[in-house]
Design a protein around this nucleic acid. Sequence first.
DNA 1: TTTGCACTTCCCATATCGTGGCAAGTATCA
DNA 2: TGATACTTGCCACGATATGGGAAGTGCAAA
Lengths: 255, 255
Amino acid sequence: MKIVQSIERAFDILEEISKSPAGISDLSRSTGLPTSTVARLLYSLEKMDVIEREEGKSIYRIGPSVVTLASSVNPTQRLLTAAQPHLRGLVEMLGEAAGLAIPAGYDVHYIGEIDSPHPVQIRDWTGTSLPIHIVPSGIVFLAHWPDDAVEAFLRHPLDRFTAQTVISPTVIRQRVVEAKEKGHVWLFEEFSEGINSIAAPVFNHTGLLLGALHSHGPSYRFPSEEMEDVIAQRVMQTASAISEALGFVPNRDSK
Amino acid sequence: MKIVQSIERAFDILEEISKSPAGISDLSRSTGLPTSTVARLLYSLEKMDVIEREEGKSIYRIGPSVVTLASSVNPTQRLLTAAQPHLRGLVEMLGEAAGLAIPAGYDVHYIGEIDSPHPVQIRDWTGTSLPIHIVPSGIVFLAHWPDDAVEAFLRHPLDRFTAQTVISPTVIRQRVVEAKEKGHVWLFEEFSEGINSIAAPVFNHTGLLLGALHSHGPSYRFPSEEMEDVIAQRVMQTASAISEALGFVPNRDSK
DNA sequence: TTTGCACTTCCCATATCGTGGCAAGTATCA
DNA sequence: TGATACTTGCCACGATATGGGAAGTGCAAA
């Protein structure tokens, strides 16, 4: 098949513009196209909101709508986009950071987070991976694995990160069972001294486990005494809301 | 002028795909175009690396190259992109957060930051604005304003944020002079208790002040005793490196 | 396996639509 | 003020995008 000429040219122009904003004649030179043709293509791109022009001047640059397009590049982005408002709401409610993680082998990979408004806060783990057994999101993932996969995982030696880190297969098995029952997991200072965190599962439209929502804060203030259960409720509600935003339909029966 | 038909159609299709990946006939239905036309447009977009297809299947989705396009949306992004590696280097060297801010009227607007590796850290101010007189980046901006603009600013009432916040026009004038001499500004707990920070100017290729580079950390560890001057040197060096990455040519004479 | 349905790919005649030369209009600079 | 550089508008031409339809492919049910 043959590439549609005007589309090929339009994207050649876009590429030039993305390197640096330019006017019609600049582009005419760099692409080798007649100015009238470049003008027409630019006009079309502008009307489609792909590019915008410098106020007054006729210098064109990539427009913000491209960012929207780009946000859908992969499922992770999709998840993040869908979750964004819910994360905000949760952070506002709890006053602590909330974020998302996805499973990556025997690791938990952090894909996004909204930080707490507190000046003193936990660092943002976005982009990093942590072992599955030291973070609550990891336990949540284990709770959705087939039993034999969990057993295979538990046969591996597990690292200790703090004095509190649980590496006993027996205790981890218990936690997994508990996670299935309660729908969330709390972990206290097992990854890092001074940090507590909670997580709950997020599902996609087919009901498959997609990732986990977590919230964490400095242990001196999070969770405050009697709030432990209330926070858990909020986090699970938010996780469900995100799942539903992704098309997941909860069924009224079941635990 | 008239919009080029194939471009209009191509972006209609892209918009559909960005909502959710789809195949030829799905798109044919949602756009009302004949399948052969949709197929040809998709083929063109695929060849231009704008979309990619699900391995084997013929489900199309937005490709990664769009992310590249999107990264050039505006000058701020350009600054951020150029500064990225330098920010990383600085954070690695200092062990504290570093970021960029641009002037916005009588406010300093934070546009990006790389956080410190410490678990206990300062929150990320990206996206927020702070008054010009309480942050070192603000004083840096003042140092590059015409004198009468500075005087006009000082006639406005200035808010106090902490016990340490300086709101005296006289002291601020002194600081501006000092900023011009030294090329950087230190401020101690003037915006928030427990936070110290330093800033230095970043210039664009025409030598115009573009923004400021800053670094900040908890006051109990930043800056450590005798490191104050060394840190200042590093920050200024990094700011210069960013300016040069943007095409700024420093002249060896000057002050 | 066969049958049927739904989707994608290919082909080709048609005329629509993009094209580019040119000229008029406008901004920039000395 | 004149000269230069760039943008916008116009329009006849024909190259090129178009879309109907047929052939090919894949999947699932019978």
